[in-house]
Design a protein around this nucleic acid. Structure first.
Length: 261
DNA sequence: ATGGTTGCTTAGCAA
């Protein structure tokens, strides 16, 4: 089965591109981030015509996450359901049989001296705690999304420009390592060790044609998923042409689960 | 050093 994640930067602005990408690449599951709309505005009908069900955790103007699937999920959870009062729609979890899939839109954090960055680090701490409370690492869990973290220097085209920013500073890389320490392995890096592999390019300064990007969108999986992952790639072509998202879809190929034939 | 771009909402914020 093919599983993908894509920060679409507004599902309404990317409507045609989303439909075309689904038809071209036929993923079994697609995690979306930055819907920038509420459920009432989400294109359920157009997606259903292509054969996709959608679980949606929407929000007006900002954030918003979804999971598209061929069959409806067996269970759906929105948010982290912890003590914190958090109006930001950044997390959605679906269970399909024994497989749990999480669509996550980590906070960007703005700048390291901003309250938004403190919120980002706290949100990442909460995510680790949520994992500990709700899951076990021997389960089949895929954590997918825009993590807004470049884990290593090889994930950054111009390290000198980004090293001290919210996407790369040691504090945020350590927070990500703490999440991975739950029991996750980066499925894309496992299969694609090369330099120059990025998922996001700034709209400005010709970043994309110069391939001055960062790899901040990820699919990570628990140990039982590692041997069933046969490949991974980033669809750089989707960033080309008129009106692209600033993020490219990230894709992994998994051997099918028993229940899915 | 600043500004460069896009989307949502309508001048400014977030990314």
């Amino acid at each position: 089965m093919r599983i993908a994640t894509w920060n679409v930067n507004s599902v309404r602005a990317r409507h045609e591109r989303l439909l075309r990408w689904l038809q071209t690449h036929q993923p079994d599951l697609l995690c979306l981030q930055e819907l920038k709309c509420q459920e009432a505005q989400f294109p359920f009908e157009a997606l259903r015509e292509l054969g996709y069900e959608a679980a949606v955790h929407g929000q007006k103007t900002y954030n918003g996450v979804a999971i598209l699937s061929r069959q409806p999920a067996d269970e759906v959870w929105a948010g982290m359901m912890d003590d914190e009062d958090d109006p930001q729609a950044r997390l959605l979890t679906c269970r399909f049989g024994e497989l749990h899939v999480v669509s996550a839109y980590f906070p960007n954090g703005s700048s390291v001296d901003s309250p938004k960055f403190a919120y980002k680090l706290r949100w990442m701490q909460r995510l680790r705690r949520w994992l500990d409370l709700r899951f076990r690492p021997d389960q089949a869990i895929l954590l997918c999304g825009d993590f807004n973290v470049a884990p290593e220097d090889r994930d950054v085209a111009k390290v000198e420009n980004w090293a001290d920013t919210v996407l790369c500073v040691p504090a945020v890389r350590e927070a990500l390592a703490s999440i991975y320490d739950f029991g996750f392995t980066d499925l894309v890096r496992t299969h694609r060790p090369e330099e120059g592999l990025y998922s996001w390019w700034d709209y400005r300064q010709l970043a994309f044609p110069r391939n001055e990007g960062l790899r901040i969108d990820h699919i990570v999986g628990t140990a039982s998923l590692m041997p069933r992952c046969s490949g991974a790639w980033i669809d750089r072509d989707e960033r080309k042409g008129a009106s692209p998202s600033d993020h490219a879809p990230v894709v992994v190929e998994l051997d099918a689960f028993e229940a899915e034939g």
